[in-house]
C-alpha cells in the first residue's frame, strides 16, 4: 500500500483495521500524522454533531404508542360480545378464506425491505438472474428493466419479489403462487398504493409508492401490462 491508497482509505473509513494499512503507517511518518489528523477531525465532527436528546423522549414514545391503541379491561359483558364476534368472524373468514387480501403481509415485507423499492441508482439486472427466480415458480416473462428480483418469504410462503423501472416510475411486483383470490383488491395504506389480483400463477401484486403521483396515476395501465407479462411455463 502506498501513501495515496492509505490516505484514501482513511478518508472514507478512519476506523478501519486493515493489516496492510497498518503496516504502511508503521513505516511512514507522514501517514501516521495524517491518520492522527483525520482521527482528530472525526472527534471534532462528533462533538459538532452531538445534540442533547430531550428528556423523557423514550417515555413519550411509549406513551404515544399506548394512546394510539387504547386497551380496555374486559368485563363479562365484553367477553360475551367478544366471543360472539369471534364466532362471526370465524364463520365469515371460513367462507371467504380464498379471498384473503394479503395486503398486510405484502406491505409488511415491502416496509421491511424498502431499499429494494427505492434507489435511483439501481441498474437493470440480467435476464439470467430474473429467470432463476421465476424458475422456482414455473413462470416466464419478457419484461425488461427489472432492477431487483428475489425469492422472499411473505406470511411464511415463498413469493417472487420483483422491482421494475418503468420510464421514470418504479413498481414492485409480487407473484404469490400460494394464493388464489377471486377478485382484485385495492391496496392503500397511505404509504403504498396498488392492487392484488388473481393470476394464472396464483396472485399478482402491483404496488407503487403513494407519494409518487405519476407512478400511482399509471397503476391501472401497468397492472394490465404486468399481468400479461408473467406467464406460466407451458406444461406446468
Amino acid at each position: 500500500m502506498n501513501c495515496l491508497e492509505f490516505r484514501q482509505l482513511k478518508l472514507c473509513d478512519p476506523n478501519t483495521e486493515d493489516a496492510e494499512a497498518n503496516r504502511h503507517r508503521d513505516v511512514c511518518i507522514a501517514c501516521t500524522q495524517f491518520e492522527q489528523e483525520i482521527s482528530g477531525l472525526d472527534k471534532s465532527i462528533h462533538q459538532a454533531l452531538s445534540v442533547a436528546v430531550p428528556e423523557g423522549l423514550a417515555a413519550r414514545i411509549l406513551l404515544n404508542r399506548s394512546l394510539k391503541q387504547p386497551q380496555r379491561k374486559p368485563t363479562r359483558w365484553l367477553w360475551l360480545s367478544m366471543a360472539a364476534s369471534f364466532f362471526a368472524i370465524v364463520s365469515v373468514s371460513y367462507q371467504f378464506y380464498q379471498d384473503t387480501p394479503l395486503a398486510e403481509p405484502v406491505l409488511a415485507h415491502i416496509n421491511h425491505k424498502p431499499h429494494e423499492f427505492y434507489g435511483a441508482e439501481h441498474r437493470a439486472i440480467g435476464n439470467e438472474q430474473l429467470q432463476s427466480v421465476l424458475d422456482r415458480f414455473g413462470i416466464e416473462t419478457n419484461i425488461e428493466n427489472v432492477v431487483y428480483a428475489a425469492v422472499c418469504p411473505v406470511d411464511g410462503d415463498e413469493v417472487a419479489h420483483i422491482v421494475i423501472k418503468d420510464g421514470k416510475d418504479q413498481y414492485t411486483v409480487m407473484l404469490l403462487p400460494q394464493y388464489s383470490p377471486t377478485k382484485t383488491y385495492d391496496i392503500d395504506d397511505g404509504m403504498w398504493r396498488g392492487y392484488i389480483s388473481p393470476h394464472p400463477a396464483g396472485a399478482i401484486a402491483v404496488i407503487a409508492d403513494s407519494n409518487h403521483t405519476h407512478a400511482v396515476a399509471r397503476l391501472k395501465e401497468v397492472k394490465g401490462k404486468y399481468w400479461s407479462a408473467f406467464n406460466l411455463v407451458a406444461g406446468i
Binding site: 478518508l11 473509513d13 454533531l49
Partner: peptide
C-alpha cells in the same frame, strides 16, 4: 458513520447504493 458508527456496508444498505459510492461520498 461518525455519530453512530455505522460501517460502509450498513450505510450502503440504508441508502440502497453501492458500498463504493458510500466510500466515495465519505471521502
Amino acid at each position: 458513520q461518525v455519530l453512530e458508527g455505522f460501517n460502509l456496508q450498513e450505510i450502503a444498505g440504508i441508502f440502497d447504493i453501492p458500498r463504493n459510492t458510500v466510500a466515495t461520498r465519505l471521502h
